[in-house]
Amino acid sequence: MTSIAMQRRRATVSRVWAQFRSSRQGMIGLAVLLVFVAVALAAPLLADVRELNPVYARAQGNPQWGPPSVFPPLGTDYIRRSVWAQFVWGSRVSLFVGLAATVLTILIGSVVGIVAGFVGGKVDAVLMRVTEWFLVIPFLPLAIVLASVLGRNVWNIIFVIGITSWPSTARLVRAQVLTVKQRLFVDRARSLGAGGGHIVAHHILPNVSGLILANATLAVPISILTETTLSFLGLGDPTAASWGKTLEEAFVNGAMARNAWWYFLPAGLGILAVVLAFTLIGRTLEEIANPRLSRSR
């Protein structure tokens, strides 16, 4: 039984991959993303972590506000730290927070969506009402309020993003669960005496996982952009400098008035590239999971 299920899963994966490979936008997105993942993983090889320490930077004799021509490859900031090192190490934080927050978002959204769709009735009505309320609460102010209350560390940021962005996932998953539920095989499984947990695990989840994956990929950009904005507004973790934190420091310390473009361009371009990559991948996955969309595109 399990080997059959495994085989089927492997067949699905290879079919999705074949479709994905034929999409130009999807492959571009994937290539860009892989580059940044490689940079994040290889951070210790690419830049000395001590370069992030102003004391070390000063001892090294780094220039202050050194342009790239003076201090390759990306110059230095107001306290002589290497911008390249900040870029490389910041990619870790930005990617990590973006992915972890998305996992939380999808987790909450999927649980709410599956429970609401599968159980139905009053539970569904209550859950959907709550979801609607969360959709109405403006998400950035809520995140700001929560973040300023909870304190400035990476895990709180992840929690804040997760707790504010799950509703749209919940709605999508619920709709999909309802469609799947309508299909005959769930009724059949139920009449064979399968329990709710078994049905969810073996019939509902495999059928909604494609959609959840596409939705998750499209949620990463929102997580990353939210983290960036929160950091920019001074709510980021001071000990784990993300790209957003770099932008905040550049802004607060007058990089713009000095036209120190090397300080704030790389981090922004990094965010842009990663967000765009996830968007392209997500759109491609969405087209594969929902063929009706691809026809109209």
Binding site: L247, A250, F251, M256, N259, W261, L265, I271, L272
Partner: peptide
Amino acid sequence: TMVFYSMPDFWLGMILLVLFAVVLGWFPV
């Protein structure tokens, strides 16, 4: 439009500010 959609709005603002206000001086900072 997808490129503009994918960048942090305040970062776009920073770039426009540096370009048109700081470097070119066409607009107030």
